[in-house]
C-alpha cells in the first residue's frame, strides 16, 4: 500500500487508479495518476472542439454545413434543457450547466476509447460536487440574503436547524457519490469481463459497453445536471 488508497492493483483484473510518477511538494509525496492524464486528454479534446466550433461559428454560413449544424444542435439542446428546468433564472446558468454537462459526458464516454473514465475517481466527482455546492450557496446568500438563509435553516422550528444543516452538507456528497459509484461500477464490470473472461470476450462486450459507458454515463450526466439545476433554482427563489 505504498502508493496510497485505491492505487494498488490486484492480480490481472485491473481497474484501479495507477500512479504514473511522483514528486515531493512541501514534504508531501504527490502522485500524478492516470486520472490526471485522462482529465488532460478529455480537456484537450473539449478545447479542440471549442476552437473548431468557434471558428465554424465565426465563419457561419446562411445554409449551415455539417459541423456548424452539430454545434448549433449541441448549444440549442443545452439551452432548451436549462431553460425548461430553470425558467426565468436560466440565462445566468447556461454557461455553468453546459460546461459541466459537456465535461461529464465526454469523461463518461472516454471509457469507450480505452481511457479510464476520470469520473471513476472520487477526486474528480467530489470537485464537481463542491463546485455545485458553492454555486447553490452563493446564489442562496445572494437572493435570500442572510436573514432568509437563517429563516430557511430554522424552517419548521428553530431546533430543526442541525438536521437542515446536515441535509445541506449531504447534497454535494450524494451528488458526487452517485456519479462516482455509477461510473466505477461500469469500470469494474468491464474490467471483470476483460480480466476473467478474456478467452471468450469477443464482440459481445460491445453490448455491455453500450449499457455501462453510453447509457449509464449519459443518464448520470443528465441526473447530475438536473439535480444541480433544481437545487440552484430552488436557491434562487425568494418567497
Amino acid at each position: 500500500m505504498e502508493q496510497g488508497m485505491l492505487l494498488s492493483a490486484g492480480a490481472d483484473i485491473d481497474f484501479m487508479v495507477h500512479g504514473v510518477f511522483s514528486y515531493e511538494l512541501f514534504g508531501q509525496t504527490v502522485w500524478i495518476t492516470t486520472t490526471h492524464i485522462c482529465v488532460l486528454i478529455v480537456m484537450l479534446v473539449i478545447i479542440a472542439f471549442c476552437f473548431a466550433a468557434n471558428r465554424a461559428v465565426k465563419h457561419a454560413t446562411e445554409v449551415p454545413g455539417t459541423f456548424q449544424n452539430i454545434v448549433e444542435l449541441v448549444v440549442e439542446m443545452l439551452d432548451n434543457m436549462v431553460g425548461g428546468v430553470m425558467g426565468k433564472h436560466a440565462p445566468r446558468f447556461r454557461n455553468y450547466i453546459g460546461t459541466i454537462f459537456i465535461f461529464i459526458l465526454v469523461s463518461n464516454l472516454s471509457g469507450l476509447f480505452g481511457l479510464r473514465p476520470p469520473t471513476a475517481d472520487y477526486g474528480v466527482t467530489l470537485a464537481l460536487g463542491l463546485m455545485s455546492f458553492s454555486v447553490i450557496h452563493f446564489n442562496k446568500f445572494k437572493h435570500q440574503k442572510v436573514k432568509g438563509v437563517i429563516e430557511g435553516l430554522c424552517s419548521p422550528w428553530p431546533f430543526w436547524a442541525p438536521i437542515n444543516i446536515i441535509g445541506d452538507i449531504a447534497v454535494p456528497i450524494s451528488l458526487s457519490l452517485r456519479l462516482f459509484a455509477n461510473i466505477l461500477s461500469g469500470v469494474v464490470m468491464m474490467a471483470l469481463v476483460y480480466g476473467l473472461l478474456s478467452q471468450i470476450a469477443i464482440i459481445w462486450p460491445a453490448a455491455l459497453h453500450v449499457y455501462f459507458d453510453m447509457f449509464s454515463g449519459a443518464i448520470q450526466t443528465y441526473v447530475f445536471c438536473m439535480l444541480t439545476m433544481t437545487y440552484v433554482s430552488d436557491a434562487c427563489t425568494t418567497d
Binding site: L6, S8, S174, L177, R178, F180, A181, N182, I219, Y222
Partner: peptide, 23 residues
C-alpha cells in the same frame, strides 16, 4: 429514468462499501 437513477443511489452506497472492504 431520472427517478430511477436517483433511487439507484442507495444501492450504489452498498456497492461502495463492498468495494472499500474488498480493495
Amino acid at each position: 429514468l431520472l427517478g430511477q437513477a436517483v433511487a439507484e443511489t442507495t444501492g450504489l452506497y452498498g456497492l461502495l462499501i463492498a468495494m472499500l472492504l474488498l480493495f
